[in-house]
Design a binder for these strands. Structure first.
Length: 302
DNA sequence: TCACGTCAAGCAGAT
DNA sequence: ATCTGCTTGACGTGA
């Protein structure tokens, strides 16, 4: 099991997603920002490795406006060697990488422009993973998308659009159950018809439950991962103690987490902690796992 | 130096 | 109709 966190490291005073506004666009600023972002990404990866964190989600803002019409600059070529160095470090350290395009990536949209933009965005994410030289265990995850008043038709639209994506996107593509629209059963149905592996979001499953227990859910999603996809990935959070109603917690709830680990000790998977304080909770989770003999099945380091 | 308005984009649900 | 949340605050302007 590898444990990780998304996008931002709060212990380092750098961001791999520096703000970049459209009206301030210039090629110089773009190059400057990407240099900053890649530099920070390197710092984060080194921090992670030194702290036994071998799972990380790279920010979609790494290359600003990558899928926007304003982007004419060949960043892939310009930063090719930088990406290769980072990729070599990732592979040498046996780290696992994922990416998660934002809420604007909706391939089952009824609007042609939205679909085109979504495909461009997926291509950009695949570019990043390919420039890093990562194999198909590095994943790009989205949700199914909108409902548009007819869930079955919207599911069918997702499936048709998926089939037409480039292989280089499909190699990395996975989908995830969400907290409102598409629950576990519905993503499993899509997986059956397309072969897409499923990321089980434990917390979304709690909010938008299709009836399965955690164990049943893990067994079902695990079958959707083939050897070349790597270990199944789960996303984990607990409920915010005050805000409640499907809001992610600010910090790890130790009791909830140890209960979860206890309940799932039969299974092996990689775990992404979607908790607001990022690496701080991740470090604590790793400490809990390594210090507690009940959990000695876990091998943090390969 | 600091307060404050604003930032590419979609969708659903609450107010 | 407008606001909020999503994975998430930081930049630019003007006082």
């Amino acid at each position: 099991m590898k444990i990780g966190y998304p996008c931002i490291n709060l212990s380092l005073n750098c961001r791999s997603s520096r703000t970049f506004r459209l009206k301030n666009y210039s090629e110089n600023r773009l190059i400057d920002t990407i240099e900053n972002n890649l530099d920070c990404l390197e710092k984060i990866l080194k921090f992670n490795y030194e702290n036994d964190i071998l799972f990380f989600r790279i920010s979609s803002d790494l290359i600003p406006f990558a899928s926007h019409p304003i982007m004419q600059f060949n960043w892939q070529k310009h930063f090719n060697s930088g990406f290769k160095e980072l990729g070599d470090y990732i592979k040498k350290s046996h780290m696992r990488i994922t990416m998660h395009p934002g809420q604007y990536t909706v391939i089952n949209s009824t609007n042609l422009t939205v679909i085109e933009n979504s495909i461009k965005e997926l291509k950009y994410h695949a570019d990043v993973l390919n420039l890093l030289g990562l194999d198909s265990s590095a994943k790009i995850t989205t949700h199914i998308g909108g409902v548009y008043g007819n869930k079955q038709e919207s599911l069918n639209r997702f499936i048709e659009r998926y089939k037409n994506l480039d292989e280089r996107i499909k190699n990395h593509y996975v989908i995830e159950n969400d907290d409102k629209n598409y629950n576990l059963n519905q993503v499993l149905k899509v997986s059956k018809l397309t072969g897409i592996p499923i990321i089980l979001d434990i917390y979304h499953h709690f909010c938008n439950n299709s009836g399965a227990s955690i164990q049943e859910a893990i067994e079902k999603v695990s079958k959707t991962w083939k050897r070349e996809d790597g270990l199944p990935i789960l996303h984990y959070s607990s409920e915010h103690p005050i805000k409640g109603k499907c809001r992610h917690a600010d910090e790890i709830d130790i009791k909830h987490f140890t209960d979860f680990i206890e309940k799932t000790k039969k299974y092996d998977f990689d775990l992404m902690l979607e908790i607001k304080n990022k690496e701080k909770s991740t470090l604590l989770a790793i400490k809990i796992l390594t210090n507690d003999i009940r959990f000695n099945r876990i091998k943090i380091l390969e």
